[in-house]
Design a binder for these strands. Sequence first.
DNA 1: CGGTCGTTTGATTACGATCAAACGAAGTGG
DNA 2: CCACTTCGTTTGATCGTAATCAAACGACCG
Lengths: 246, 246
Amino acid sequence: MPDQHMLLPFLAKLESHASFSEEERRLVLSLPYTIVDYPAGRHLFREGDRATTCSIILSGYACRHKVLADGSRQILAIHVRGDGLDLQNAVMVLVDHNIQALSEVRAALVPAEAISQLAGESWAVARAMWIETLIEASIQREWTVNVGRRDARGRIAHLICEIGMRNEAAGLADRNCFTLPVTQEQLADATGLTSVHVNRVLQALGAEGLMERDRRLLKIKDWSRLSEVAGFDAGYLHPVQSQMAN
Amino acid sequence: MPDQHMLLPFLAKLESHASFSEEERRLVLSLPYTIVDYPAGRHLFREGDRATTCSIILSGYACRHKVLADGSRQILAIHVRGDGLDLQNAVMVLVDHNIQALSEVRAALVPAEAISQLAGESWAVARAMWIETLIEASIQREWTVNVGRRDARGRIAHLICEIGMRNEAAGLADRNCFTLPVTQEQLADATGLTSVHVNRVLQALGAEGLMERDRRLLKIKDWSRLSEVAGFDAGYLHPVQSQMAN
DNA sequence: CGGTCGTTTGATTACGATCAAACGAAGTGG
DNA sequence: CCACTTCGTTTGATCGTAATCAAACGACCG
């Protein structure tokens, strides 16, 4: 399999936001990159770094997070395969948060300079990348709602629904059954709770027959009731490419 | 004063992110627009709207928010003069949240089509607008941290610090003294608290000599202690133009 | 076979929510 | 100009969700 194919999922994602010419497709696929593997827990970027590359996740889960002065931590986003992490590094170098592998992660590192140059040459590509970061911003808003206004049950149910949907969208698995290689403490950091309380809520959701979690495998038994307690509406993920201008 | 001057603060903001040619300056200032006034409380956009204009705030305060099924509300961002609301409408039409005037607001409405076309013609302008939306995303991440991991005192202190800084950056007022035309209920919606508790926290902060609030005028008496309880670090606002690539 | 990490359970605490009511300021209409 | 309404603020009393503290348990690993 030739090298270029590594970037195909990324190209597909961009093309869902804008229509590319053959030439533009070729330019995206000929972006220079290097493959890097990170063990679980390893940081890809740290707050304050001047990042000069963008990473595209080829496999595994990564997260963004910030650590507060008292040591508490807030996970800000979870990223799955195909996500172009930090396209923003192409235009804004200083990163203001940490990025860490949750599971083992394989990523393609592309020089920010190359991304920036490509964006300058092709408005369609630039536009697609801009849209990609806008969707991330939309997800971030929903996370703010999640920790700001939902109770513990709702927060966890919502997070599970989101990850299920995104796994499905990435073509990885069924939304009702997927591996979730994160600890309960990490779920706590994502939802603004404590790991003890996360444990109790997971058990409660299990007891109600909404979901099951055995080791790292998560099965959603009743999507409609789970999304009900989550108040989940997938619109914020902008799943289809129907809402574009031009 | 000729019409163009209305967009000068907007141009200045964009130019702080990228260097423009004379031609590019001219193109920005010649964007078509109409001036609209909104009374306090009026919605500029509603969730689900297909927005075809971008608004640039000329005066007043506006906010983004989402309303949950149970009627509770989360304010996601507060916007001040000079902020280009919803540049994203240029590339992504469907808005997934509400935008509402907090005080009386005067805004310049620019057709999304015109913005989109300008971005297609000038990479520097497109890049500046992209950066502008990336800074908004950075602020959104900090809000997630705020509601997720800070206690009530910290949340409110942090919000006050942010608004102070942004007012100062917009050239509106001193960071230690500005008008904050929002009710305690709106502060509650921004911080994920109840208005009753906001009231108590404000009184506590006042009693400790950190700040004072008389009517709509907010005075910060001790910035260093207030930012300390807030855990405030202005980096996420990307206040200066020093962190750019290229 | 200890050792580490993550999960689970129990007991207690506390922060902020909720409920309820009074108060004050601004605006409206008679 | 003064009742009257409305909206926002303030105060008090009580409740409940989730935090905290502590310890045991289970799985995986060297």
